[in-house]
Amino acid sequence: MDAVPAIRVVDLRKSFGALEVLRGVSFDVPRGSVVSMIGASGSGKSTLLRCINRLETPSAGEVYIDGEPMGGRLSDISRMRRDLGMVFQQFNLWPHMTVIGNVIEAPIRVRGMRRKEALALAEECLARVHLSEKGKEYPARLSGGQMQRVAIARALAMQPKAMLFDEPTSSLDPELTDEVLTVMRELASDGTTMIVVTHEMAFAREASDRVLFLHNGQIEEEGLPDQVFGAPRSERCRQFLSKKLQ
């Protein structure tokens, strides 16, 4: 097994004023593995994800991407962010660009790819999210599920070392979550390194290699999915799961 994990988080802490949101979180994400983060709202899951790609600046602790410490100058952070695809709860597609425009923007502007290559790449990425036919549409014309899949394609187009999903299905109607989860399952089985913050317990159980349960800014329980879901050691995790799985 590979010695250097794709993502290593060491004793990460984050406070907003007096509020301590993360109180020392450490974990590894080996290359090609899927880590799901579950926990109640306010447990710090999203903040943790946002600290990994520096949309939030951690108060203390380190994040390593492929062994390289995340941080330093803004330009270094931007360079390292290329390798971390982020998918947001609110999709955050750019409304003034077509679907294709959204996908090729970063490869062209950030990676300096030629337009023709970028278009070919975009087609590939859109095929992976099953939206090949929507390239010329503007985001406003898509359903929530389609928007989120475009957002996934946009992140994939940067050919990142890892994908970060921040509650990707939480603002979708139940009938639209499946199409997004299907795409994510496919990515997972293709060997994409993923961290997934989610409330979809079935997905966390079936698709991930490891599950982290966060409580009050700390990892309260951690293990293989069957272990966390089947026989949680922590009382809080048991309570959380029994509420979720009712």
């Binding site: 949309l55 803004l74 947001f88 955050n92 597609l93 750019w94 970063a106 946009r154 940067m158």
Partner: peptide, 21 residues
């Protein structure tokens, strides 16, 4: 929306690129 800018930052765009594009 702040998220539109964050989406730009998270694919590695600079502040200037996020502003201009």
């Amino acid at each position: 929306p702040r998220g539109h800018r964050e989406a730009g930052y998270s694919v590695g765009m600079s502040s200037f690129q996020v502003y201009r594009r």
